[in-house]
């Protein structure tokens, strides 16, 4: 009986995990994905959980988001928070254990190629990204599921608009089983939808306070990021709203120290409180 047949016989009798190689593993799998935003990493206990689904809602206007009739008619025109998402993908790519490719699903989630270039014209992220143009939620869910199953894919970024609880649970389970992060971009009015995501974030545009018009070469795009939910995290144990800023020089997103806010400051409206409870 050959070695392979002997192993198969043992596995049939005692289960697949009965035979293990004594060879050292090349690398240990990371449990968390460091976002590079120190305060957020600290609040999350080491970063975003690797084997989980993370939903990013946005981008909402800086004022308190109220779904008025005009917004209802313009749902097709929502803008996904591509800046923070590209930053997270770049961070994930920098991990040594990261698998080869990132899959972007849904045309709305396709970032402009210029932001995928790294410092010094580094094309690694651009060349390791694949873009799947699908429209319907069912097709997007199928592609997300298939990509998460593939060993050659390390990260999935998908347009999650229209996904229901069952869809997010399916993605969460696959992400957990294959130890990969899945990032869903969702429109801001879907924050009330039930979801199985590990974390949920709401991204808003952050208006600058200053003169009415100032011609300047130094202003940077800013967003406020609010953590709506984090499974396993004690409520109100740490700040849950932060300000992010686009670093034009490096093409990265970093924490904005100038307009950092603490818990309570961000959620001063009834709408924000409702979002937190969600």
């Amino acid at each position: 009986m050959s070695l392979a047949e002997q192993i198969r016989a043992i596995e049939e009798r005692f289960g697949e995990a009965a035979v293990r190689s004594a060879a050292p593993r090349e690398h240990e799998e990371l449990s968390h994905l460091l976002t590079g935003w120190a305060e957020i990493d600290a609040a999350l206990g080491g970063g975003l959980m690797m084997a989980a689904l993370h939903e990013w809602f946005g981008v909402a206007p800086s004022k308190n988001f109220v779904a008025c009739r005009e917004d209802e008619t313009r749902r097709h025109a929502w803008i996904p928070p591509l800046g923070p998402l590209v930053h997270l993908v770049r961070r994930a790519m920098s991990c040594e254990t990261f698998s080869d490719h990132a899959v972007w699903i849904g045309r709305r989630c396709f970032p402009y190629g210029g932001v995928l270039l790294g410092a010094g014209g580094d094309r690694r992220l651009l060349e390791r990204s694949i873009f799947v143009a699908v429209n319907g939620p069912a097709d997007r869910l199928w592609v997300t599921d298939l990509a998460l199953h593939s060993p050659a894919v390390g990260l999935v970024i998908a347009d999650g608009s229209g996904f229901d609880m069952a869809a997010t649970r399916r993605i969460q389970l696959v992400a957990k089983a294959h130890h990969k992060p899945a990032l869903l971009a969702r429109p801001p009015w879907e924050t009330h939808e039930l979801s199985a995501a590990q974390t949920r974030w709401l991204v808003r545009f952050e208006a600058v306070s200053g003169p009415v018009y100032e011609e300047s070469n130094s202003f940077n795009p800013r967003w406020s990021v609010e953590l709506l939910r984090c499974k396993g995290m004690q409520p109100d144990s740490c700040p849950c709203a932060w300000a992010l800023e686009w670093d034009r020089g490096e093409g990265a997103v970093r924490l904005s120290t100038a307009v950092a806010r603490q818990t309570g400051d961000a959620g001063d409206s009834t709408n924000d409180r409702r979002l937190k409870q969600a």
């Binding site: 490719h101 995928l116 990204s129 694949i130 873009f131 799947v132 143009a133 990509a147 593939s150 050659a152």
Partner: peptide, 22 residues
């Protein structure tokens, strides 16, 4: 091989033009 299999399945179901690279 895994990458090829993923692309094959995507293109088989969604069409050749749905799977793109930048």
């Amino acid at each position: 091989a895994a990458w090829g299999e993923l692309l094959d399945r995507l293109m088989d179901r969604l069409g050749l033009r749905a799977v793109c690279a930048m």
